[in-house]
């Protein structure tokens, strides 16, 4: 049986994940007037987090395609396993 490499980010269910730089992250938190812990979370063991090599504490910008808004951004902070 073929054991080929599968690029999960190409799947239609998976939106684009982008790691924010330090400055971008701070800017975002300032704009939303929140702390990191108030953001939705994503586990460090998440396949997409591993793929983009994000570390706990990083903020990931997710480019969601939505039938109502077209495109919008969602942010998740990477947390290590509970």
């Amino acid at each position: 049986m073929g054991k080929r490499k599968v690029d999960i980010s190409k799947h239609e269910l998976v939106p684009e994940h982008i790691v924010l730089s330090e400055e971008e992250a701070n800017e975002l938190l300032k704009k939303l007037n929140i702390t990191k812990s108030q953001l939705p979370k994503i586990l460090a063991s998440d396949p997409m987090v591993k793929k983009i090599k994000a570390k706990p504490g990083d903020i990931i910008k997710i480019v969601r395609r939505s039938p109502t808004a077209g495109v919008y951004y969602y942010y998740r902070v990477v947390i290590s396993e509970k």
Binding site: I8, L13, V14, H17, D46, P47, M48, I62, R64, R76
Partner: peptide
């Protein structure tokens, strides 16, 4: 299974679909 293979964002889309 989707969560495990593709991650939480894909799982969210799968729930909606």
């Amino acid at each position: 299974e989707i969560e495990k293979v593709f991650g939480i964002e894909a799982a969210r889309n799968a729930i909606i679909n």
